[in-house]
Amino acid sequence: MMPHRIDPLGEAGLQFYSKVSASISHEIKNTLAVLNESAGFLEDVTLMARKGMNVDMERLHSLAGSMLKQVQRADTIVKNMNRLAHSLDESWTQVDVNSLLELMKNLSERTTVTRGFNVTVAVSDMPVIIATNPFFLENMIWLLLDFAMTVTGDAKTIEMQTVKADPGARIVFSGLDRLTENKFNDFQTERVRLMLAMLNSTLQTDKNNGMITLNLPGNTESPAQ
């Protein structure tokens, strides 16, 4: 019997999706923990008030603010998750690279912050529209960010920047002071090469300046079509 070969792109996509889901569920659990304690605190205050003890109105006011903040935080997390889920709706469509980069910064924040990294995004004022596979572009950015964290300098800061090209766009990752040819070659696994081919994109390095550029095409047709 022939051994079953796992589709590398499918596997990469699932791994990406599950990692983001795990990170998001952790974030939601944290907001629920705060709301849970807040509800418990209100219960404590109610019991104390029933016993005739004074209620600290200022503390209640600040608690309401904290609860509202947590609800807004959870709402943003769920909105981001929803955007990621909908990026699988169409396999080739027009996207704004600026907005997609912001989404990836938010979705990866827990992972990057937990590992002690600061990720910034520099986007142009005008939307940068390209035709691409949104889900695999997000996956590619995730993989590049994960790799970037292994070659960043002591500042542990990574900047992601969108640059409009004619045609297409570029996403530049900078702050990669420890980027070497060997490390970059190791990064270019089968799944990365397949993903680049499916996005019709290329990677370019500038080791002297610690940068990797993802070149995104301006064509409107999927390479698979």
Binding site: N30, V34, F41, S66, Q70
Partner: peptide
């Protein structure tokens, strides 16, 4: 690392 969580649980 959740400051809000720390404050409330500490009070309780």
């Amino acid at each position: 690392d959740e400051e809000d969580f720390l404050n409330i649980i500490s009070d309780r």
